[in-house]
Amino acid sequence: MNRRTVSLLWLPVSAIILYLASITVLQGADNQPPPEEVESLRGAAPVGEVPAAPDLKKYPKEQVPMDLQFVGQPPLIPHSIRGYQITANSNKCLTCHAWENAASTGAPRIGISHFRDRDGKVLADVSPSRYFCTQCHVPQANAKPLVPNTYQPVESLKKP
């Protein structure tokens, strides 16, 4: 084999190598999952258009308390809390739910856990970490879950 034929052979070989390489690279690109559809809270409406607002949630004056789903769940609020001030100055909820007021107002007392601070020490009054009630307790409303959830309560909490 003279030098000329060797260099002629290189041509198809390099073409084949190039072809195989590009196939593997492109194949890899194909295997990537398709880019996710990102949707902001305002929905798919293009910027510049004003989409219709969702209906406001209804907060009825009072409702039957909802069943608890797990032990230690903060119960939902079965009554309206419109206009109830919870500020550094005053806490309307405690005028009914505090232990000293519960008897005369017929409201369930706040749980023992509400007197414990973050280190587990029991305090004489509501722990500051439990002062802002609506952090954990929200009124019941006709709201759908924001994300899908397949959670099931344990047998003992299930309704017969």
Binding site: G83, Q85, T87, A88, N89, S90, T95, N101
Partner: peptide
Amino acid sequence: KGIAHKLPDMSGVPGW
């Protein structure tokens, strides 16, 4: 109380 305005510091007011 507080039906129409923000409440002042209620410590010491009976029931609060």
